[in-house]
Amino acid sequence: MSRRAGYRAGVPADATPPPVREIETLEEFDRVALSGSFAGYRLQAVDLTDRTFALLVADTTQAVFLGCPMEPQALAHVRAGGALVFPPVPHLPFDPYRATLYSPSELYADLAGGYEHTPDARAYAWFRSTAASGDVLASMLRSIHDDAVTDALDEHLAGARVVGVMGGHAMKRGTDAYAGAARLGRTLARDGLTVATGGGPGAMEAANFGAYAAPHEDVMLGKALSVLGGAPSFRPSVSEWALTAFEVRERWPEGGTSLGVPTWFYGHEPPNAFASHVAKFFANSVREDTLLARCNAGVVFLPGAAGTVQEIFEAATPNYYSSRGEPSPMVLVDRAHWTEQLPAWPLLSALARDHPMAWRIALVESVTEVPDALARLADR
């Protein structure tokens, strides 16, 4: 949890905080336990029920335990020793203190019994049942979860060059548009970029799938697209749609990595199974800003509707004010879509006039032009 200043009782607010030391696995716990001290450490989502003796003999001064199950004797000892303990919360379909990003296999566990039985669907059901209740506990748990996921995302992306690919969820498998978005994702991944999307169906899935296909021979893309075309959309059956994706993963294992950043706010849109790492959020506003703020190599906007339009101008705002350093490249794809159907480009270009961001935006006709456009804009 590298972003947190942490719990430091008795330390002046203006003092320089010491480096935060984290423990996120049992292996890390066992290594630190040899020293006999967890003083000042942050232990996150580690099951310590089998580590009672190590806890009883250790110094836990100003340690913080976040969602770490432990025996009552150990719990009493660490609290008496000056630790701050945030206990696990029972009966939740998710871990609010989780230390890592999700994987598709984790979110889709038990898919064979129907999508409604998966952890993803159960978390969405919990969200819907608590979102309107005004329950402060539920609200707090959602916030803790989203903060933990943000922290895990920052750790995962450290040093990465990230390019965002935004676009509508309505794009169907089996279409030329889907195949084009997949080829784009493959090209960007082969160029050494981390492809990041909103993590859902349609254009988002296509780009993540393209990144997944990047290590494979070119012929794999066409064959896999044919398989995916057997379930064109997540409607009416999320189960069939997701199972088809996992069939592709089984036939062509060891795919490339990419990032998906979906939200349970739009829980009717399931996450796609091709993003190797998934940062799923409850708060859509947090999710949108988190995704766009980390696209340090630019953002590509494929044709979409309201959500994609929102993302265009959410990315444009920090570029306009240069609030995140140099403006990040923005490439809009499909001239007719962005000048006639949803004329976002005229407004974006007018906004950019006489500003540094004017040199970092482009409108292209086809996905084949995107890599060159990104490279050209980055050099300006």
Rank of each mutant, 00 (worst) to 15 (best):
R360D: 05
P119H: 09
A181T: 11
E247A: 12
L347D: 05
W241T: 06
A179I: 13
V163Q: 00
R173E: 11
L26G: 05
G159K: 01
K280S: 10
E288I: 10
F313L: 06
M171C: 05
A211I: 07
L292D: 00
L259Y: 04
T52D: 05
G40A: 12
Y124H: 07
V333G: 01
I144S: 02
L332R: 00
A39N: 01
H91R: 03
V248M: 03
A112Q: 11
A109C: 07
V331D: 01
G113S: 12
S239I: 04
Y212C: 09
H117L: 12
P232Q: 00
T368Y: 02
S366V: 14
D30T: 13
A275F: 14
T187M: 10
S366K: 09
L374A: 00
E28S: 05
A121S: 11
R353E: 14
A152F: 13
V85D: 04
H77T: 06
V162C: 07
S276R: 05
A54Q: 06
E254C: 11
R360E: 08
L157P: 11
L111K: 01
A9D: 12
M1Y: 03
A15C: 08
D14G: 02
G267E: 06
G36K: 09
L291G: 03
N272S: 08
G192L: 10
Q73W: 11
T290M: 10
R324T: 02
D191F: 04
L137A: 03
T52F: 04
G199L: 11
G304W: 06
V165D: 00
E217M: 13
P96G: 01
L75K: 07
R186F: 09
M1V: 13
L243D: 05
G40I: 13
A206S: 12
G164M: 06
Y102S: 00
A211D: 02
R183S: 15
S276K: 00
H169M: 07
V162L: 08
V46S: 00
R8W: 15
A279V: 14
G222W: 13
F274G: 00
L188Y: 04
Y178F: 15
T187G: 12
D218I: 08
Q62D: 13
D47H: 11
R251Q: 15
D372T: 12
V57A: 06
A45N: 11
D59C: 09
A138Y: 09
H156Y: 15
S2A: 11
G67T: 05
R186M: 05
A54K: 01
E250W: 12
S323Q: 05
H268G: 06
P96D: 05
A207V: 10
T61I: 10
T308C: 08
S349Y: 10
D372V: 01
A344M: 14
L55T: 01
